[in-house]
Design a protein around this nucleic acid. Structure first.
Lengths: 246, 246
DNA sequence: AAATAATCATGATCTGGATCAACAAATAGA
DNA sequence: TCTATTTGTTGATCCAGATCATGATTATTT
């Protein structure tokens, strides 16, 4: 059962700041091209471990966060207790701006593995933006992208079959790999089958079965948490059903 | 078959600017409290008629829009031609910021009835924001709200039953009514059953059947496009299944 | 006004993915 | 180390909502 909550810490392995979602923001804030001088924006860094919350439902909104290394899931709940995972976040991604309007979080963020995070005080950010033109413009761009992503998700949830959903999900994982140039085509899944199912509007059983089928068909190899991409093109076809029959 | 596209025009019945989603923006831009002085921000106003596009897939992004009066649907398409309606917009709502990041629209907006729109040049908006602190902050707030809304939609699409989906949809329509104080509890549906179904991840047949059931159960009265709310509380219960049995 | 095309409505049937069940494997805790 | 809990897997069955079909209204065009 989760657990702790925003434990303080310091020093963590750096990921390249220039691969971070707030790199442009940090660069602007520090007023120079040097990517390491990001402290004008980032208040503190800390580490969370598996099962710990970054924020909880009802928390007052004060900060936005950037994932430096690790992974996080965010989800919302309905009145009657159903939950929907709204995103899985990895290195360089930003969390928290869904709470700007209400001034408090109506969602929760749980860490899926040991994860280091940069914390940006939003009021400090707003203060800086008075001095640094372009800072808010950059935030607007990031938020625009998030809206686009959410709309793609609505399309997936509303219109795609189970196979298309999972194929789409895997293709998107694949993109991350290229971006972070880890081993050519292998991915460590940090989320459970249940989480994937919840995210895609399916059950864990369906996820298991389709993963098994993808493996039989020679599209992926999967062993528990370890996913290996064998035929990315076929997967892309399945993601939007343009499969040249078979 | 749709049709024309961004036809120019002028003069249209005003809706109260203070009920508009960009009222705060207009007010800041005009630098005074007078809600009628909004021309610092709004470039032009025009009217579209049923079936006309406000923007189309692939269009270069230049403007954001505010609906003054009328209604609009927005949707995206997958590679294989499935479409998902992402929003229905009414008076005072803003459209277009999903295109800021990419610089072009990956979605389309079609007008559902004769609709008047305020057009705001985004580059002009950015220019103004250099002089008027708070302008971009306000946009960030509006976008944050849009993200929240999209997440609620993901929950609906991923986790709710057909009945819950439609009840939720009707309850949200109801909110609009109060806000725009039209006749006590009657609503003119400008979208088709098919559109509602598409939006909610259902078919038009299912929408018809559930509407009929809601009417039998004395929750609404519905006659083609005209919807009358009879028991809003019951509807709210159905929206998140907390129905005290029956 | 007549013809055509959308839209709405309702019944009959089918099916993709949920649910239920039972167990295996891995992980966390004591 | 052993035990308990979580996570993953696969089969059998079921059902909510899709699909198919047909006709009634209502809008739009000619």
């Amino acid at each position: 059962m989760p657990k702790l909550y925003k434990r303080d810490a310091s020093a963590c392995e750096l990921i390249a700041c220039k691969d971070c979602g707030i790199y442009q923001l940090c660069r602007l804030a520090s007023g120079c091209e040097d990517p390491s001088v990001s402290n004008a924006l980032v208040r503190r860094r800390f580490i969370l471990r598996r099962g710990e919350f970054l924020y909880r439902n009802g928390d007052t909104f004060q900060d936005i966060y950037a994932v430096r290394h690790g992974s996080i899931k965010t989800y919302i709940a309905s009145d009657d207790g159903k939950t929907q995972i709204t995103n899985f976040l990895g290195s360089g991604e930003l969390i928290g701006f869904d709470a700007i309007d209400a001034g408090r979080f109506d969602s929760e963020a749980i860490v899926l593995e040991t994860t280091s995070v940069c914390e940006v005080s939003f009021s400090h950010f707003q203060g800086l933006s008075r001095k640094i033109p372009g800072l808010l413009d950059q935030l607007v761009v990031v938020m625009s992208h998030a809206i686009l992503r959410d709309q793609q998700m609505m399309l997936l949830l509303g219109k795609k079959s189970a196979t298309e959903k999972l194929a789409t999900y895997l293709v998107n994982l694949g993109r991350h790999i290229d971006k972070n140039k880890s081993s050519p085509s292998t991915y460590k899944l940090t989320m459970s089958r249940r989480d994937i199912g919840n995210y895609l509007g399916l059950t864990q059983e369906t996820i298991c079965r389709i993963l098994a089928r993808f493996q039989e068909d020679g599209i992926i190899r999967i062993q528990r948490k370890y996913l290996h991409f064998v035929d990315m093109n076929r997967l892309r076809e399945l993601a939007s059903k343009i499969q040249a029959e078979r």
